[in-house]
Design a protein around this nucleic acid. Structure first.
Length: 900
RNA sequence: GGGGGCAUAGCUCAGUUGGUUAGAGCGCUUGCUCGACAAGCAAGAGGUCAUAGGUUCGAAUCCCAUUGUCCCCACCA
């Protein structure tokens, strides 16, 4: 193999190539394999009209990391991708496109033609987002890619709809719904966003017909034409005289009754409320109670109806202005008041929603919500973090019937058919050829389509084959984890939960991993209107997919928002570069000049145990760090703490492997002892191999690329001989036998750090080799002697000597105290006793403070009695260590003082 | 009107079931062309963990209150 590793991490050199290799190898594909345990994630399907944004990047990176990890653990790991038809969003986009190119409205084009265009649109753009996912490195099973309007999903939707209808849980009814005049469709309650706007209250006098005038307040004067009553509270004394009398709608000849109802709050406004049943949910109920008419004055396009007389056809907001002006001129406007008014707006187009009375399809929710509540309470469905369970439950507990019909064309058409002759409605899986009641043919299908979320609610099982009884469904359902943002819990998670329970009788997923939003550097939400969005593809282009992924993973703690900052990204990129170069170092040291492999010790099964005498202290140390990291990373992943897992590998890679092990092992690699070199190579390879494995779920490209350059050692398991994506997840536990060796090395590290510190403080010329004298107890002396070569090379010493007594140590020297030893460095003319005195004094003060703290703790009898033994012992050891250090420090300080 | 999050180093944030000398990255200071890496190496400065109580042998961590801040839900004219 040609080895020509670039000096720097250059992701463009390999990302596309690696992805192709994965895809061609079939590694992404998961079967219902009875020899393996199943693991499944269904991907929240992005909109076909959409583009990959940072939210997707985070969402998908989390899913991909989990999938890759489980795949390596030997599960049949399925990550099922797909896209959503996004009824409203797509319809708006397609209509916009047609208008832009042909200047026609969708009505002018007609339903058939419009749908043809929409499918063309889907064909053109539907693939875009999946191409973008490949750039991110998503290891999803493309062979199982689905679309919410493909044949299988269509069948699932129809089947489910008909089942619910037959059960009586879907009904058609004339009720108050949210209407978006701009989109021209009804919306469900959660598709309405609530915001407070500064607005006006107008107080109007309704002249009495057979009694007194009544003043009412309203924020929507244009609805006045559809008033059918004025309501007052029965106990409101101010109005006791007018109840039962009539008033007239100003400037009209319409007379309406004053009714007594519990709805009006005497504290608010004037205590009298105008009642407009067709345009307000509360008023609707008042109207029902009093058997009132429900006339409309605003139509579905937001214009005034004939009821508004000369304002007919005028936009509702225009009418409001003109009507108020007219009323004012006529003396009916009593006063106006500035007030904050809560208004509902459309989540897609931001238009103010009109509550109107309309005949729509509804799903009855009370019974269906119950099992969904139960699974959360019984923990068959767990939220991570668990606080989101509250959000989930509260919504289900307050759930109201779900308006599922939309006056749109792009979507699943409601399977209800009407007889043109007798009007009979038939709900059926297939279009009936004739009316079951009168036998007439030519039945017309309902014009409306279903809410997008009706089909996505079925996603966890429709994608696995339902309503067919497929082996995939039996094997992968319930899925393991659903990954999504907290903003989607109401829209989607809840609906999948109750639908899953209704259809499958089991939770659709055992865990919901909830993440937050990716915000911009200032903490603002990324949005089109602010123009502060960051395109993941540009970032991948500039920094690499792995850098982006790692940055997202390490920066996102579960459920919390994160900020997207360039310096974080650079940090992740730098980490990739660090890994790249450490790997380059390893590879360079594994190969000879001809590109062949040098001898790597065959450690076999037993060779890795601490008992193998061929292993040096630094080998045991890095192996123990590696074993610790394997345990911790796995534990964090088990708990869905991806961020902590990533941090631990980061530390292993950079802080332990690069900063220490590579430096410690260089002496051996450049030395003459071939046997020792072969062992060093083995440890390098073993450790790097495991680092790549631990890192692969987070940074799949670079780890796979490096993996390809590594020789497959004799100890490799069969699975590890192919690509990293399907290699085995490391499982080694800690080897307690390494402790002694690791302790010796750590003692040496402490010495190295102290000496480096002295050097830096004294500004000793770095190139200058220094001699050190050590005054140590027997055990420490042994440890330091064993590690002397490392201490010399890493701390830049020419010689280390050992002395028995303080008096034998060089007098003219800087010194440092470590556990069990004192180190003296003669610095000649560079020695500054004043600085030395200050440095040691500071250290002494710190130790004294610690001794006081630990001492008082140990003097506390209840601490000693009640705290766990291990904690007490640790404190005692610490105290002894501090006291020993303090003793030396005090003695040394005395010496230094005399030099001043 | 309900519900929830957050408050830890100059900045952005970790801190897993209460026991560390409270951490990281960036920034800052100082010194480094030592045969993987200046996208780097080494040394260092920097925090009374928002405030006030409580529980406990022991609190950044658990409880209560307060302040600030952000978000979600809600049919109030």
């Amino acid at each position: 193999m040609e080895i020509n590793l670039q000096k720097n991490y250059q992701p463009k050199d390999f990302e596309d190539r690696i992805y192709r290799a994965w895809e061609e190898s079939g590694s992404f594909h998961a079967e219902a394999d009875e020899d393996k345990k199943p693991f499944a994630i269904v991907m929240p399907p992005p909109n076909i009209t959409g583009q990959l944004h940072m939210g997707h990047a985070l969402d998908q990176t989390l899913q991909d990391a989990l999938t890759r990890w489980k795949r390596m653990q030997g599960y049949s790991a399925l990550w099922l991708p797909g896209t959503d038809h996004a009824s409203i969003a797509t319809e708006l986009k397609v209509a916009e496109g047609i208008m832009a190119s042909e200047g026609k409205t969708k009505e002018e084009i007609g339903r058939e033609e419009f749908l043809k265009r929409a499918w063309e649109w889907k064909k053109e753009y539907g693939g875009r987002i999946s191409r973008q996912m490949r750039k991110l490195g998503d290891s999803c099973d493309w062979a199982r890619e689905r679309f919410t309007m493909d044949d299988g999903c269509n069948r699932a939707v129809t089947e489910h709809f008909v089942n619910l209808y037959e059960k009586g849980w879907i009904y058609k009814g004339n009720r108050m719904i949210n209407w978006c005049p701009s989109c021209g469709t009804s919306l469900s309650d959660i598709e309405v966003e609530h915001e407070d706007k500064n607005g006006l209250y107008w107080y109007f006098r309704y002249p009495g017909v057979d009694g007194e005038d009544v003043v009412v307040a309203t924020s929507r004067p244009e609805t006045m034409f559809a008033d059918v009553a004025v309501a007052v509270h029965p106990k409101d004394g101010r109005y006791s005289g007018v109840v039962g009398k009539r008033v007239r709608i100003p400037l009209t000849d319409k007379e309406i009754p004053v009714v007594a109802d519990l709805y009006p709050d005497p504290e608010k406004g004037t205590g009298a409320v105008k009642i407009t049943p067709a345009h307000d949910a509360n008023d609707f109920e008042v109207g029902e109670r009093h058997g009132l008419e429900k006339p409309f004055c605003i139509d579905e396009t937001g214009r005034m109806t004939a009821l508004a007389g000369k304002y007919e056809g005028m936009d509702r907001m225009e009418c409001r202005k003109a009507w108020v002006k007219e009323l004012d001129a006529a003396g009916y406007l009593v006063k106006t008041e500035e007030k904050v008014i809560p208004v509902g707006t459309c989540y897609r187009c931001d238009t103010i929603i009109e509550p109107i009375l309309s005949e729509q399809w509804f799903v009855k929710m009370d019974e269906m919500a119950k099992p969904a509540i139960r699974i959360a309470k019984e923990k068959a469905l767990r939220h991570v973090p668990d606080r989101f369970e509250k959000t989930y439950l509260r919504w289900l507990e307050e759930i109201r019937d779900w308006c599922v019909s939309r006056q749109l064309w792009w979507g699943h058409r409601i399977p209800a058919y009407y007889c043109p002759a007798c009007g009979q409605m038939t709900v059926s899986r297939d279009a009936p050829g004739f009316c079951p009641r009168c036998g007439h043919t030519g039945l017309r299908q309902d014009e409306d389509v279903l809410d997008t979320w009706f089909s996505s609610a079925l996603w966890p099982f429709s994608t696995l084959g339902w309503p067919e009884k497929t082996k995939e469904l039996a094997y992968f359902y319930p899925t393991d984890v659903l990954v999504t943002g907290y903003d989607i819990i109401f829209f989607w998670v809840v609906r999948m939960a109750f639908s899953g329970m209704e259809v499958m009788g089991d939770t659709p997923f055992r865990h919901v991993l909830v993440h937050g939003l990716v915000r911009d550097a200032e903490g603002r939400k990324m949005s089109k209107s602010l123009g502060n969005g960051i395109d993941p593809l540009e970032i991948i282009d500039g920094y690499g997919a792995d850098a982006l992924r790692f940055m997202l993973l390490i920066g996102a703690s579960a459920g919390n928002d994160m900020r997207f900052q360039t310096d974080k990204l650079e940090g992740a990129r730098n980490f990739a570069n660090k890994l790249w170069n450490a790997s380059r170092f390893v590879i360079m040291n594994l190969r000879d000049e001809n590109g062949g492999f040098l001898e790597i010790a065959d450690m076999g099964e037993e060779g890795w145990s601490a008992g193998n005498p061929a292993l040096r202290d630094e080998d045991n140390w890095i192996l123990s760090r590696m074993e610790d990291a394997i345990g911790e990373v796995t534990r964090h992943l088990d708990r869905f703490d991806l961020s902590l897992a990533a941090q631990r590998v980061f530390e292993l890679t950079w802080g332990e492997f690069c900063d220490w092990y590579i430096e410690l092992v260089k002496g051996r690699l450049y030395g003459e002892d071939e046997g020792s070199k072969a062992v060093a190579r083995a440890v390098l390879l073993k450790t790097l191999g495991n680092i790549l494995k631990l890192l692969h779920p987070f940074m799949p490209f670079i780890t796979e690329e490096i993996w390809g350059y590594l020789p497959k050692p004799a100890w490799a398991r069969q699975r590890d001989e192919g690509m990293l994506i399907s290699a085995s997840w490391p499982e080694v536990g800690a080897d307690p036998g390494r402790e002694t060796a690791a302790k010796r090395l750590e003692r040496a590290m402490e010495a190295i750090r102290s000496i480096r510190n002295i050097r830096a403080e004294a500004e000793a010329a770095p190139s200058r080799r220094l001699a050190a004298a050590v005054l140590a107890d027997a055990e420490t002396a042994e440890a330091l002697r064993a590690e002397e070569a490392h201490i010399k090379s890493l701390a830049g010493l020419s010689a280390v000597s050992y002395v028995e007594k303080r008096e034998d140590a060089p007098a003219e020297a800087a010194s440092a105290v470590i556990s069990g030893a004192e180190i003296f460095i003669p610095l000649d003319e560079l020695l500054d006793y004043k600085a030395e005195h200050e440095r040691l004094g500071k250290e002494k003060a710190r130790l004294e403070a610690e001794i006081a703290r630990v001492g008082s703790k140990l003097e506390n009898q209840s601490f000693v009695a009640k705290a766990p033994e291990a904690v007490v012992r640790a404190e005692r050891d610490r105290l002894a260590d501090y006291k020993e250090k303090l003793g030396k420090l005090a003695a040394r300080l005395e010496q230094v003082k005399n030099k001043l």
